[in-house]
Design a protein around this nucleic acid. Structure first.
Lengths: 261, 261
DNA sequence: GAGTGGTCTAGACCACCGA
DNA sequence: CGGTGGTCTAGACCACTCC
């Protein structure tokens, strides 16, 4: 188990020096080598230990800082903030990989899959021209057979063509798409609360109007082109989202909500 | 309006070169100078334009990338991902600053404020010793007079002493604490869904059992010492949280949920 | 093949923290 | 005051994208 290439995209990122150092330090931290609240060795010491320059060490440490594992401030050695496992981008985007990382058995069933002209919102989210077509998918996702989430995903036509070719009982479309060269590089998420509509209620086995945790997501490839626009609705108590934010690099924000109709 | 020092912590961060460049480029992007999906100038060109080294330009661009504004990949110029305004860490932590940034009038009322021995969870979250004491605060927060959120915050005794000295009608405790030298550097957030208890219902004017969007937050200072542990519960439709995540530096994760009792 | 961003090095100076 | 991380420079080589 390497930890660096693991838990994520099939397209292996190159094992650069700083990534190896970051993975190594991250493992040490999660194993409690420095304790919670403990102090890391100085940059210079690490540079000597790994036989690399200070710049490379700093690049590695900036990864740990971005993941919320350590602080960093002038004058003092870095302090361990958390010893928890850091979830990879792959585990975040793929329900299947997330489920397996918890030791649960993921499942799913496609309820609807069709090709249609994109409406206004879809064109805007996927940055499509007038008259462009999209592939819409409605799926219910299960953990160990128990339905927990309804997923509505919209793909641009080109991606949708790949999706349509896959077996209907494919477990993870995300993984399959990556295998076909569709790389997920960035995603923008919005989290709020909605009421179950009639479809949701039927698929999840709850009453219409029941509250659900909603995640809307727009994923883009390395070139910045939209790959998918998705809306996931989770039953209460099945999931929680965690985020780290810091004064130097925050990615979390609070926005005005839209009343649930 | 400067943009670089604005919208946040009173403790002004030094205006370093790369911060100035990042602020400048960020402003250009939000003004649409490169369009949505457009390409940024090359690093070398920017280095020449600003009269700094390529390293400094790269540091500035990494800020924009962390904020989800631009992509970056080998071989091509950077692409603009979003032109939206980036919310600062200060706006995220302070309900008051967030409200004002939207043009709403923030308000609040302290319902309870007391000093007590910390229980097990509190000791763990605030990293306190056995027998340590904490300050607990229960507040209802309003937007333009309308109650939208119930906030339960726990402070370590030292911070609590500062809190207790403030006027009961203080609008923003976060801002006041920062003025007293308490700096917020990092925060870990967990988002999920709960049902309103009797207190929530009374304070928010809803029925017990009504669904609420919950944000639990643990904030630490630059040294990594816990400052506050807070649980905020929002009425549906009043707020949404947005996060950016990327393959190279993700801070968002999905966790198993806890059933709402 | 030309242009671009990614990685890595070596060194310099400074601001800050804590003893 | 010594040790630490933050900032900035100058240069090198490489992997990749696109024409």
């Amino acid at each position: 188990m390497d930890g660096a290439t693991q838990g994520g995209a099939k397209a292996a990122r190159p094992l650069t020096l700083y990534r190896k150092v970051a993975a190594d330090l991250g493992r040490e931290i999660s194993e409690g080598a420095y304790g919670s609240g403990g102090r890391l060795p100085a940059e210079g010491e690490l540079a000597e230990r790994y036989g690399v320059s200070r710049g490379t060490i700093r690049q590695a440490l900036s990864v740990l800082r971005a993941n919320g594992l350590v602080t960093s401030r002038r004058g003092t050695r870095r302090v361990v903030l958390r010893t928890a496992h850091v979830q990879s981008f792959g585990e975040l985007l793929s329900f299947t990989r997330w489920a397996r990382s918890m030791g649960e058995e993921p499942g799913g069933r496609i309820v609807r899959l069709d090709l249609d002209r994109a409406d206004g919102t879809e064109r805007e989210q996927l940055r499509l021209d007038d008259g462009a077509r999209v592939c819409r998918m409605l799926r219910v996702r299960t953990l160990s057979g128990r339905p927990v989430m309804v997923e509505r995903t919209v793909y641009p036509e080109a991606i949708g063509a790949l999706v349509a070719e896959l077996d209907a009982d494919t477990v993870s479309y995300t993984v399959r798409l990556e295998e076909q060269g569709v790389l997920f590089a960035d995603a923008q998420h919005t989290l709020d609360l909605v009421q179950a509509d009639k479809d949701d209620a039927e698929l999840l086995g709850c009453r219409p109007g029941e509250p659900l945790l909603r995640e809307r997501r727009r994923s883009t490839d390395p070139a910045g082109a939209p790959i998918e626009w998705s809306e996931d609705r989770y039953l209460p108590g099945t999931v929680a989202f965690t985020v780290h934010s810091s004064a130097t690099s925050g990615s979390l924000a609070r926005r005005p909500g839209t009343p649930p109709a």
